[in-house]
Design a protein around this nucleic acid. Structure first.
Lengths: 216, 216
DNA sequence: CCGAAAACCGACTAAGTGGTCGGAAATGAC
DNA sequence: GTCATTTCCGACCACTTAGTCGGTTTTCGG
């Protein structure tokens, strides 16, 4: 008996993806399991064959989202050779989350942070389950930095700080994204990030004058 | 008749403050009006004498929160003369939001952003009502920068970028706060922010070598 | 084609929500 | 003290939610 594992996995993923679409538009609570079932094209009962609780669905959706996100990043970064341009691409892609207003990622970011912060949030007691996935982005940036260092584009002395720099960089990008959305100053985002990038580049480039680090 | 306006205002504020406590710990939905009434020590019906809806309570609580926050900032900053130290105090105060683990601000920040992003969020269509309050912090930082410039501590050429720098600075601090809480790397926050401050100071100080901008 | 096992389903339950409303309590001018 | 007016209240209502469960449908080895 036992239907082929592939089939099962596929449906499980279809549910997670449907859930992701709803979580990222409605928010956790308002994305009801009934609605998720409808969106996924399955019965409500079926969902509980694959997941024990709504929390589990959310975790799965979050993982799905982070995977997709990082894959998109990776694939765009792989087309770029220069680490400097790669860093700027990371910034630009984050800016584009709000610039042509793709609120899906913004909302999901907020939702994940929220569920991780609230004491009875879905992720609160299960952050360790997410750690690997969450650190993926940071690893990507660290790698860019290390490549830059080995090519003598970035100062050698930042080597011991790569993880701190990467974390700061990503935290900054998230912060600016959230503020940007809230204040509706979308049009200024690019300039702000550009200014920040200039400073950052000025600080880590071996030869700051050759590249001025302007965004775009 | 009509009880003294003062009395009314006081109760209205007590409700908002009770609501703030709950919103910032439970989140919007889980902070039920029943619970808010209990926390404020009034009947549920009474709440609706002062506010038309739960949304209104949330807006009031948010304003209350931002006021308190900015007052705290202002009062601590007023004890400091040197703009450089003032900037660092701003950073330090933000770090302390998570360092002695007082997640109230973090949670409220996320909650406000969330309600501003979600289409059926409480603030979604009413962001303009909040704008002034929200820009308060930025104004404070801008003022610090301008003072620093007029005292020749900061480079004169940053004058045209003060608002951008201030916005970036605050966005960064929020981003690092949220990431810090989420990743539970509290102990590294101070170092990260310290590194960032060093870079920032290096970039805006007229004489970067005199002050190295280390946090703490 | 048979039939047991697996997969699927949606009506139902229990719990929790925001908001209402009729009546009780407090107030203060007279 | 009286009593009109304001203030307060919590039982109640209509609605939404996550999760269950008994029965139906699909699957597939023999």
């Amino acid at each position: 008996m036992m239907r082929k594992g592939k089939q099962k996995e596929k449906k499980e993923r279809r549910i997670a993806q449907a859930a992701l679409r709803l979580f990222s538009t409605k928010g956790y609570r308002a994305a009801s399991v009934d609605r998720i079932a409808e969106e996924a094209g399955v019965g409500k009962g079926t969902i509980y064959e694959y997941y024990d609780s709504k929390s589990d669905i959310f975790l799965a959706a979050t993982k799905e989202w982070m995977m997709e996100f990082q894959e998109k990043f990776q694939s765009r970064l792989s087309e770029i050779e220069d680490p400097v341009e790669q860093l700027q691409a990371v910034a630009r892609m984050n800016v584009e989350l709000i610039e042509p207003l793709d609120p899906v990622n913004a909302r999901m970011t907020v939702e994940v942070i929220r569920q991780g912060i609230l004491e009875d949030g879905v992720i609160f007691g299960r952050r360790n389950e997410m750690r690997d996935v969450m650190q993926g982005m940071q690893k990507i940036v660290e790698k860019i930095l290390l490549t830059g260092i080995s090519r003598k584009l970035f100062k050698a002395e930042i080597a011991r700080d790569v993880s701190s720099i990467a974390a700061n960089f990503l935290a900054y990008l998230d912060g600016i994204m959230l503020h940007g959305i809230l204040s509706e100053n979308h049009f200024q985002i690019k300039e702000k990030v550009g200014g920040f990038m200039e400073i950052l580049m000025h600080e880590i480039l071996t030869d700051p004058d050759k590249q001025n680090g302007k965004l775009q």
